[in-house]
């Protein structure tokens, strides 16, 4: 059920990406010089729905992984119950007390190679919204790096930052803020 929901999201994302012309932009995935990242975007007309009937096949993110045999052998790892790790103010450093939770997720992902994961990065309300979006992404990327170092391939991990837009706890105090600086690990 959860997975199905996610694969729909993936398909939707792929649709949008292709509609947006990212597919035609050879440079979009490249790191490096300014020239390599220059490219072209095409707008997606959405208000009249004229382009939304395009049918797009294929996945944005590869799900080719280990064989069915490997999967069956490792499928026993359970989906971890704790899905949130927390961060200090204006930092994306993984705290020591987060490692246990993250390791459980790594075990689960390694045992279930068809399983993709979304890392939702969040910030507390202090400061500006767009800077907090960047900070939320940094936190998501920190968890992504942690997963990758332990063998989870990058194409199974998506980071989405919500910045300060989706606080877990409402309140203008340290207790609320510390609960809002977080990454949620979603399957």
């Amino acid at each position: 059920m959860e997975f199905k929901k996610y694969s729909k999201t993936l398909f939707f994302g792929a649709t949008l990406a292709v509609l947006a012309g990212c597919g035609g932009n050879a440079a979009t995935q490249e790191q490096g010089s300014d020239s390599a990242s220059d490219g072209q975007v095409q707008p997606v007309v959405t208000s009249d729905g004229s382009n939304t009937d395009s049918s797009v096949n294929g996945e944005q993110m590869g799900q080719d992984a280990q064989s069915m045999k490997d999967q069956a052998a490792d499928a026993m790892a359970a989906m971890p119950e704790v899905e949130t790790v927390y961060f200090g103010f204006d930092t994306s450093a993984i705290r020591d007390d987060s490692r246990e939770v993250l390791d459980l997720h790594v075990a689960y992902l390694n045992a279930n190679p068809m399983q993709n994961v979304v890392l939702e990065g969040h910030a507390d309300e202090r400061g500006t919204r767009e800077y907090n979006n960047a900070l939320g992404e940094r936190r998501g990327n920190a968890v992504k790096s942690y997963f990758m170092v332990q063998g989870v391939s990058a194409d199974r991990i998506e980071v989405i930052s919500y910045g300060e837009e989706k606080p877990a706890v409402i309140g203008h105090n340290n207790a609320a803020w510390s609960k809002n600086r977080r990454v949620e690990i979603k399957y």
Binding site: L16, L19, A20, C22, V44, T46, N133, S161
Partner: peptide, 29 residues
């Protein structure tokens, strides 16, 4: 974030007609 991810849109405030400008992986802001 209506597509599930952040994306930049441009909308005419009078006609309501709009287009989605970006849908890249990561921040679009």
């Amino acid at each position: 974030y209506e597509t599930g991810r952040p994306a930049v849109f441009i909308q005419n405030v009078y006609s309501g007609k709009r287009r989605q400008l970006t849908a890249f992986k990561g921040l679009n802001g």
